[in-house]
Design a protein around this nucleic acid. Structure first.
Lengths: 220, 220
DNA sequence: TCTCGTATACTCGTATACGAGATTTCTGTA
DNA sequence: TACAGAAATCTCGTATACGAGTATACGAGA
């Protein structure tokens, strides 16, 4: 993944379409299970089917949509076990990244994370909490020294984004979440990796539990 | 990743092309950095560029090739840090999978793994060791109860396959590797998760070290 | 001889077109 | 009325075509 691929890449239509679709799926305007017809999308976006196909394949690779040959693409619908799997992986990956990151984590990153927390408090638009949430977490992991680990974490955030947003749209959970975020940040400031990891694990399991209570883990 | 995608899928041309290319890259006949021209491949495979494009995009998602708009696709070349990152992730992911799997791992899977080891001993064709190696490992993890974790592990095996094959083509490392495999299997038979994980970690770090000694971790 | 500009060739991204398979709808019969 | 079979429609996979951007090669000028 290094080398020539690092230069600035021309943005292709397919990438732009993928970005728009990813956001639409994350914010719920494209519900789970929705069929993504190539012709429809091509018409709607004003391009031909080819870049749409590329975008769909990209999202398929990210796990956000499922493609079946001759049957087309659908917005991936996760059932309870899949969400549990994703949260289990997040626990594993993010715990590792956090404990790797803390020893060399600079104050600038911590300040950045703090600022994101403030922005979450101030942000009225629910749709923006998802990205801010992700930004906060990734800032804390940024010094982990393993780029591949970071992109894996980001991918799982993307995959679970829809469900996290459901969580965040509940106002009281948002308070809990923010409190845990501040605990996490405090532990990081103390450079106490063990405590930070335990706070993170609690944060994730609280999220799972809230999802379960809300009954979101029953239906596909 | 569940649902309708699980039914039997018609095999599309793109998938077949992707499989052939993946194997060619893994066995070294397509060296790292090689440019993959869509026209060339289309001509060689006897199809148009469209399914080739799909295949390349698929492999790009797997991290095996890099695609740059207007510059085309190249076989991904990993430098030392990337290989280290992959092995670090394998350590993390496979240790977790193994310790999750062992408590419920059935004897049938253990026998299966043992049989794969025998086949590795008997197999004269170097090109086949890579898949057998992967099959062995995945058999031990198969009861981990997290399908996503398993496919993540498989993806990382694929990404590192080329380098693992370099390792395996060295006869004396192959001996070390097989010995470690048998230790691992023995620990699993005892259902001793802690020991199994420690053997696995040693197995992986030995592999890394052998790669480093062979100087494969210097150049991109 | 070296450097820079231009022209040519190459490669990719995207558009359009066609055929195959699947799904739906319609029709005829039990 | 319910069901089976056939026709029509829909959707995708693949092929071909075109335009744009990039790299390369060649020639002119310093």
């Amino acid at each position: 993944m290094r080398g020539f691929a690092e230069m600035q890449r021309p943005q292709t239509v397919a990438e732009q379409v993928a970005n728009v679709l990813r956001e639409a799926i994350a914010d719920g305007s494209l519900a789970a299970g929705t069929a993504l017809r190539q012709d429809d999308l091509a018409l709607r976006f004003g391009f031909s089917r080819m870049p749409i196909r590329d975008a769909l394949r990209q999202l398929d690779a990210e796990g956000i949509v499922q493609i079946h040959p001759t049957k087309g693409a659908h917005v991936a619908s996760m059932d309870a076990t899949e969400i549990r799997e994703i949260f289990a992986l997040r626990d594993l990956l993010e715990s590792e990244a956090l404990s790797l990151s803390i020893p060399t984590l600079g104050d600038d990153k911590l300040d950045e994370a703090a600022e994101v927390l403030a922005r979450i408090d101030a942000e009225p638009d629910v749709a923006r909490w998802g990205v801010l949430n992700r930004t906060f977490h990734l800032a804390l992991y940024s010094a982990c020294g393993n780029a591949r680990l970071l992109s894996l974490i980001e991918a799982h955030h993307n995959a679970a984004d829809r469900y996290v947003r459901m969580l965040l749209s509940s106002l009281d959970y948002r308070g809990v979440s923010q409190a845990e975020h501040r605990d996490l940040l405090a532990a990081c400031r103390k450079r106490d990796a063990a405590e930070a990891v335990s706070v993170l694990k609690k944060h994730l399991s609280d999220g799972m539990e809230t999802l379960a209570k809300a009954g979101m883990l029953r239906k596909g």
